[in-house]
């Protein structure tokens, strides 16, 4: 009896009641899905921003009757438009589509050789707008030089891509919320199972004067350990999968990604460590609420 007695670390017997296999496994699966969801949301946002930028700056200029000359000038309408574009500082990458390229574009509707049809096709010029402000002044100037000239921007596509991005991100957010809710439900069920298994012990401890907060704290601590273990494992296991997906998406992604760690973007590296923390918070909070609610059924 003279030796020192250490207080038992687990006097409620929670190691047996809340076993260290099933709950970490399920939480790990949730963390794995959450990691994929976060990566998907960030990737869609990045790609959309890239596409929006391309679409917003793209110019398509159609010059009707390109070889016609106005009475006041000696050059053709096409040459006048090309000259004006060359003289405009914001218009970059000006390129006239060749007849073959136009043929190619129209072939689904008009067949392989549009020249044989004798149709009055416009000349098509592509460019990128890098100037300040919008393309309104350029459009007005070109229409003055060549009446009927159309200047299209990618504004319509920009709006569509923005809508697509918003819907993809909403889907990712919904997935994350559902994963969090399922995680909380899993923790709640596991906690109830543990309480049922240790009911007699907890009732005795309660009747010996333990505070509800003390009992809830002990159980929440055990749940916290299990959820963090599961979330860390699930997040770690998601890394090779995310790296593989990043390699598949590399042609669509920014060129800087290839040099990043595992090919994953910095914002994803910042978000992934938060997963175990969020899982810990969900696990601890759910266990506290579940145990305190259950204890309220006792006198």
């Amino acid at each position: 009896m003279a030796e020192r007695h250490r207080p038992p670390a687990d006097f409620l017997g929670l190691r047996a009641a809340l076993a260290d296999r099933l709950l970490p496994l399920l939480v790990g699966a949730m963390a794995f899905l959450a990691a994929l969801g976060i990566a998907g949301a960030q990737a869609s946002a990045g790609l959309a921003a890239h596409w929006q930028q391309d679409a917003a700056t793209a110019l398509t200029i159609q010059v009707p009757t390109p070889q016609a000359q106005d009475a006041t000038t000696t050059t053709t309408r096409l040459a006048a438009v090309l000259g004006a574009l060359a003289a405009t500082p914001g218009a970059e990458g000006v390129q006239q589509l060749s007849p073959a390229a136009i043929n190619n574009l129209l072939s689904p509707w008009l067949g392989t050789d549009t020249a044989d049809l004798g149709l009055p096709l416009p000349a098509v010029i592509t460019a990128h707008w890098a100037g300040p402000g919008g393309v309104g002044p350029l459009r007005a100037a070109l229409q003055k030089l060549s009446p009927g000239t159309l200047v299209d921007t990618g504004a319509l596509w920009t709006g569509r891509v923005a809508a697509l991005t918003a819907s993809l991100q909403a889907c990712a957010a919904a997935v994350l919320v559902i994963v969090a809710l399922i995680g909380a439900a899993v923790v709640s069920v596991a906690t109830h199972a543990g309480l049922a298994q240790r009911r007699e012990t907890i009732v005795i401890v309660h009747e010996l004067g333990a505070f509800d907060g003390d009992i809830a704290g002990l159980i929440a601590q055990r749940i916290l350990r299990l959820t963090v273990t599961g979330a860390l494992t699930g997040t770690a296991l998601s890394l090779p999968v995310l790296a593989w997906l990043a390699r598949l998406a590399a042609p669509f992604a920014a060129s800087t990604l290839s040099s990043a760690l595992l090919g994953l973007p910095a914002p994803l590296w910042a978000a992934l460590p938060a997963l175990p923390l969020i899982a810990a918070l969900i696990g601890w909070g759910t266990a506290q609420l579940t145990v305190r609610g259950w204890l309220r059924t006792l006198p």
Binding site: H5, P8, F11, E200, T201, I204, V205, G209, A210
Partner: peptide
């Protein structure tokens, strides 16, 4: 009796003081 089955005699007796 209602002793905690996972605790030895010493720890069962010490339990009320530890809870306090």
């Amino acid at each position: 009796f209602r002793l905690l089955p996972q605790l030895n005699a010493y720890d069962n007796i010490a339990l009320p003081m530890r809870l306090a």
